[in-house]
Design a protein around this nucleic acid. Structure first.
Lengths: 215, 215
DNA sequence: GGTTGCCTTGACCCGAGGGTCAAGCGGGTG
DNA sequence: CACCCGCTTGACCCTCGGGTCAAGGCAACC
């Protein structure tokens, strides 16, 4: 009922072992995001990585846990990218725009992988019932929400955003990023990445404030 | 490779048969949208509808086709709701807002069922490979897109929306509706429906024009 | 050379679940 | 009454795929 998150019964890996694990995660990421979780067989992952099927279970307890690890890792990277992009001295609205643009760029650069985070929408797909994974996903998506909610509150306090439920604004902000991510992936959206990021940033700012803010 | 869309080999149904078919669709809708497509067993649907398992295959060739029929039906209803809400004499921007608000209301009223349309995002889940269903989904989501794109173009021509790729605007509009739909379903979003609709309508208008338009 | 422990293999197991089928039921029609 | 046909059943089949396992390598260290 636990294992994996951190302690208990953890295997020790050599240099080579760690690398092999990354290979598997890499292969899994590509397949999951192109064919979807359900349509990706353990055997596919192994074939892609060029190893035998049993090996997966040396590194991961279950398919779900392998997936969860991928999601955690992607999320960590994304948050780092966001944090790096947000100027701590800027006003909340600007910070939201910076975070949004960073998300778009990140998602474009990691197209394949980013699809995984999109799964948070269809969590239901995974949670047959209280699988540990379901928790990981839920708790994870909340992180972004609370972040944005806080920024929106700050912005409202400064009069940059009109009054209204901050949660609603947050849903809008997160949703639009997710939408463009999705559209960019399976879509006929062949625009320049920076252009797209700017567009989305502008979209969010206009939606939040009703005014176009300069870059 | 065809069957079902219309012709060939179609069974004739009695009054009772049609009703039974609706029962099955109803049960399937509830289960699919609460547990997801992959986690819903044919057996579950039958249990919920109180019939034997074999009966499903009297009315539907496969599980996928049953699903596709649900999606088609939901989409039809939604488009009707949108069309009814849009004033043919209003300006394009207003029409977009009306369509958006209608979508939100529709989605709130059909919470459970609407989840199915959300699946269009995770089409990949279904399309193990060129399954007919994948086509139905793709082609279907395009309908909304082209509609919105046309309206955006009109609005731009009238100077109501700044220049820029109409497709990008369309993705934003459709995405935000989908996002709020999703948030409302599995979410802590317990706001009044009309209030939410108004919020989303306003959001879209601001994002499109940079100005708040009155209701 | 032996031993310990990380790593790798591929054949195997087994439950789940989509789909089939032969049989039966009941109402309408000739 | 006999027949057809739409409808209903539930046992059965069979594939697919996640997960297991016993049997090896191959280092490094003693």
């Amino acid at each position: 009922m636990n294992a994996s998150t951190e302690p208990s019964e953890r295997r020790t890996h050599t240099e080579q072992g760690i690398e092999r694990k990354h290979q598997l995660l890499e292969a899994a990421a590509v397949l999951f995001s192109s064919k979807g979780y359900a349509n990706t067989r353990i055997a596919d992952i192994c074939a892609a990585a060029g190893v035998a099927k049993g090996l997966v279970y040396w590194y991961f307890p279950t398919k779900e846990e392998l997936f969860a690890e991928l999601v955690r890792s992607m999320r960590l990277q994304l948050r780092r990218a966001q944090a790096a992009a947000m100027d701590p001295n800027a006003d909340p609205l600007t910070r939201i725009r910076q975070g949004t643009e960073a998300s778009v760029v990140f998602m474009a650069e990691h197209r394949a992988y980013f699809a995984l985070l999109d799964v948070e929408r269809s969590q239901d797909e995974l949670s047959g019932r209280g699988s540990d994974v379901a928790d990981v996903l839920r708790e994870g998506s909340d992180v972004y929400a609370t972040d944005v909610i806080r920024l929106v509150r700050d912005a409202q306090r400064l009069g940059l955003v009109p009054d209204g439920d901050p949660q609603l604004y947050a849903v809008g902000v997160l949703g639009v990023v997710s939408s463009f991510s999705h559209a960019l992936r399976n879509g006929s959206l062949d625009v320049d990445v920076d252009e797209l990021a700017a567009f989305v940033g502008g979209w969010v700012i206009r939606a939040l404030s009703g005014e176009s803010h300069g870059s």
